[in-house]
């Protein structure tokens, strides 16, 4: 069905010229869900970034007498945790670490995986086999297990958990990058570029990268939520952040004993993890459909 409507559209000369990314931007601005998600994420980012200037309570300052206050207590708008620290401040400060260990591994994996995938997809042959079979080895393990194993081997700590999560995501992104690249590589315009005498590096830079970056980016955005949850899991197991650092996964862990005393407060870090990951997921869905411009 789309075929005919497309051919109808094709006949229509377009009057206004807008680049590909311009069109994508316009389409995503029209998508309400993506817009709301982007706003929520930006709000969380900014509050985490500017946390010291928001006039919040000290997130490390506890109080033995004001422990586990319910939500809405004066001076404790979101209650207090098991050591009497202000939950609002800890949630906002916690965003700093949580977002960093949620996003950084994906950023690193995106860079490494894209390069590996494009090279494997474009060059093909033995190099492709070598890269992709290595990637397959990592796929044999469930990502949670792999993250725990690598983290465990490297030892606890923020840097190590970022490294382990990066290693978990590289194979996934490589595989996506490779399959998209293989598709683009067989397009006539790549042959046309080869026919004009361009070298492999130039073709990858000019003709492949621009066409594969979009899908890989969308896929990676979706991984951010996985990364946040895995990072929270590592902290929960004591393999990530160490107390008293505020971090959502760790907070969830330490507050779990209070689940019967004050369930609402105990659930708050989980709510944050959930909110951020669902926003990233919906945003990547929105991006995917916005970038799916069929000509």
């Amino acid at each position: 069905m789309t075929v005919i409507t497309e051919s109808v559209l094709q006949a229509a000369p377009v009057t206004k010229t807008r680049g590909y990314w311009g069109t994508v931007g316009r389409r995503i601005l029209r998508d309400k869900v993506s817009l709301i998600c982007a706003c929520v994420l930006i709000a969380i980012f900014l509050s985490a970034l500017f946390a010291p200037w928001l006039g919040l309570a000290d997130p490390y300052q506890g109080s033995m007498i004001r422990r586990l206050r319910p939500i809405g207590t004066p001076n404790y708008p979101l209650g207090s945790d098991e050591l009497g620290r202000d939950m609002l401040a800890r949630l906002i400060y916690g965003g700093r670490l949580s977002l960093i260990i949620g996003i950084l591994p994906v950023v690193f994996a995106f860079m490494i995986g894209t390069v590996l995938g494009i090279v494997a997809g474009y060059v093909g042959g033995k190099l492709n086999t070598a890269i992709m079979r290595t990637v397959d080895v990592f796929f044999a393990f469930p990502s949670v297990l792999l993250a725990i194993a690598i983290s465990g081997a490297l030892g606890a700590g923020i840097v190590n958990s970022i490294v382990s999560l990066t290693i978990v995501f590289v194979p996934q992104i490589t595989r996506v990058a490779e399959s998209v690249t293989t598709g683009v590589r067989n397009m006539d315009f790549v042959d046309a570029a080869r026919a004009s005498g361009a070298g492999a590096l130039t073709i990858m830079r000019v003709h492949i990268l621009g066409n594969v970056l979009g899908p890989i980016f969308v896929y990676s955005t979706g991984l951010i939520s996985v990364s946040m949850i895995l990072a929270a899991g590592l902290s929960f197991l004591g393999l990530g952040t160490k107390p008293p650092e505020p971090e959502w996964g760790l907070m969830l862990n330490t507050l779990r004993t209070a689940i019967y005393v004050n369930p609402w407060v105990a659930a708050l870090p989980g709510v944050m993890i959930f909110a951020v990951s669902i926003c990233f997921n919906l945003l990547s869905d929105g991006l995917r459909s916005a970038m799916d411009i069929r000509e």
């Binding site: 069905m1 005919i4 409507t5 051919s7 109808v8 094709q10 006949a11 229509a12």
Partner: peptide, 11 residues
């Protein structure tokens, strides 16, 4: 020709 609406009419 393409875009003349012949297939659309048929459908």
């Amino acid at each position: 020709e393409s875009g003349s609406g012949k297939s659309v009419t048929l459908r």
